[in-house]
Design a binder for these strands. Structure first.
Length: 480
DNA sequence: TGAAATGTTGGGGCG
DNA sequence: ACGCCCCAACATTTC
């Protein structure tokens, strides 16, 4: 007897293990037909950025291999998503369509429409494959959404324990033994026909090939990363995670974002390393806030910040993007991002504070740049991170908490190794001046080969006076 | 998941 | 010996 066929509409769940949609199909002896549909315009206003496309291309390639080992093909189509799905239903005679949710506001809305439309002809099932808990499940005692992290965290901790004990592990291997697959012939585009890698200019092409060398995609490399991290670094995570000059973080963010690995798998594997697993709950919190406050990806959660006298200084913004602000720790971070598609979390906070509170540029500009250049660009995390730094979000850092780039540098990059790596023109400066070349005696600069205004820029602004200006601007938000 | 400004304390130098 | 000042070290408040 032929098994019934089920369309699995893949999104940011590019794995087979612990993937609720695949598990459902295999548990019920259905032949899964995995489909990926490229429809970037449906994600507006946050269409996939440049780094996202590169990672996605490679991640799909990795998944395709993984699926082929199971005897499955990955079908590629172009959007509109609804049309593509309806055509596939016709071609495959599938009577069930399933997918794992995405929580971005535009996609939640799109998928609701598609669910309504498809339900007229087939059964539709929707799972959560990317969060420990669906944001809809979680309410405080008053029945309203949590707005502060700590109570949210405590609330989730108890739920996570129960959930893991009851439902984990959900490895696909349990189900593949009895697979009797008869995968149908269906026409599909090639991955390259999706044109995820279509640079417009020569420099984009160069940027791409450089960036691709940093993109180790797929379930396998993600899981290796996790295992190594748990074995070697997780114990020191609490002490080292704030040190951009050392390797102290897991670097799992992009794997998690694209669903190459599930949050449960990470939780389970890293269990007991509280400082680390706590970060997973921050990710939950970010998605939770985005779900309950969908316009927080574009608007201040605290509306009084609309009154802040932001500056639209293109020159400053460009200098920030390229790592030419004259503040070494800021420039090192921005150059690391541009070069590798990743930036250390501590440096993300420093460059964010600098853009907002020293250059007085709106956090949306920073969010857009990160969105385009980060491999791990994730709408929930990105929006929460930037609103946190700006002080305009829920449970955010207060605006007046302004990072001093020299002190942050001295504290978290004490020997300047991080700065020396990404700003080689400063490499010969002694530790004492590495985070503030503009204060160094001329002779020291000279012997280190640093020529301010020539091979390294003068500071765009003076931190002390910029800070005063930011605090004055804060007063304006309190009026009216 | 700051930093600066301001306040307090206590030890030591010194008249 | 004593009071006074200085200032480092630490604590508290403020932005």
């Amino acid at each position: 007897m032929q098994a019934n066929k089920v369309l699995i509409w893949l999104k940011n769940d590019l794995r087979v293990s612990d993937n609720p949609a695949f598990i459902y199909a295999l548990k019920n002896n259905l032949t899964p037909i995995p489909v990926f549909i490229w429809a970037p315009s449906e994600e507006k206003p946050w269409e996939p950025g440049s780094a996202t496309r590169l990672w996605l291309h490679n991640s799909l390639k990795a998944l395709q291999d993984e699926l082929q080992n199971l005897g499955l093909d990955l079908i590629y189509r172009l959007g509109p998503s609804q049309k593509a799905l309806e055509e596939l239903i016709g071609e495959t005679k599938a009577n069930l369509v399933i997918w794992n949710k995405r929580y971005e506001p535009a996609l939640l809305e799109r998928d609701k429409k598609i669910e309504r439309a498809l339900s007229k002809q087939v059964e539709v099932k929707i799972f959560n494959g990317s969060l420990l808990f669906d944001p809809e499940q979680i309410k405080n005692q008053q029945g309203t959404p949590f707005k502060v992290f700590t109570p949210f965290y405590k609330h989730l901790l108890t739920m996570v324990e129960t959930e893991i004990v009851q439902n984990y592990p959900k490895q696909i291997q349990q189900f593949t033994k009895n697979l009797k697959l008869d995968f149908p012939k269906i026409k599909s585009l090639n991955l390259s026909q999706l044109e995820l890698l279509e640079p417009n200019t020569a420099w984009q092409k160069k940027w791409q090939s450089k960036m691709l060398s940093y993109a180790q995609c797929g379930y396998g490399s993600g899981f290796d990363l996790l295992k190594n991290f748990t074995k070697k670094s997780a114990g020191e995570y609490k002490e080292l995670r704030d040190r951009p000059d050392l390797v102290g973080t897991s670097r799992l963010a992009s794997h998690l974002h694209f669903g190459e690995i599930s949050p449960f798998q990470i939780w389970k594997t890293a269990q007991g390393h509280e400082a680390f697993t706590r970060q997973l709950i921050w990710r939950e919190f970010a998605h939770y806030i985005m779900f309950h406050f969908p316009d927080s990806t574009v608007n201040n959660l605290k509306p009084e910040f609309d009154n802040f006298p932001w500056k639209a200084n293109k020159k400053f913004l460009e200098a920030w993007k390229l790592g030419q602000t004259g503040y070494p720790i800021v420039d090192a971070g921005m150059r690391e991002l541009w070069e590798t598609g990743w930036m250390h979390n501590r440096t993300r906070m420093i460059v964010g504070s600098f853009l907002i509170k020293d250059l007085l540029i709106h956090w949306q500009e920073g969010a857009k740049w990160f969105w385009d250049t980060l491999f791990d660009a994730d709408l929930a995390n990105n929006s929460m991170g930037w609103q946190w730094v700006a002080g305009s979000g829920v449970d955010a850092s207060p605006f007046f908490r302004i990072f001093n780039p020299m002190l942050q540098g001295a504290k978290f990059d004490p020997h300047g190794a991080y700065v020396r790596k990404w700003c080689p023109e400063l490499a010969k400066l002694p530790d004492e001046w590495i985070h503030q070349p503009f204060d160094a005696p001329p002779l020291i600069l000279q012997s280190a080969g640093v020529k301010l205004g020539d091979n390294y820029p003068f500071p765009l602004v003076n931190h002390d006076s910029a800070r005063q200006e930011a605090l004055a601007g804060l007063q304006l938000t309190k009026k009216s």
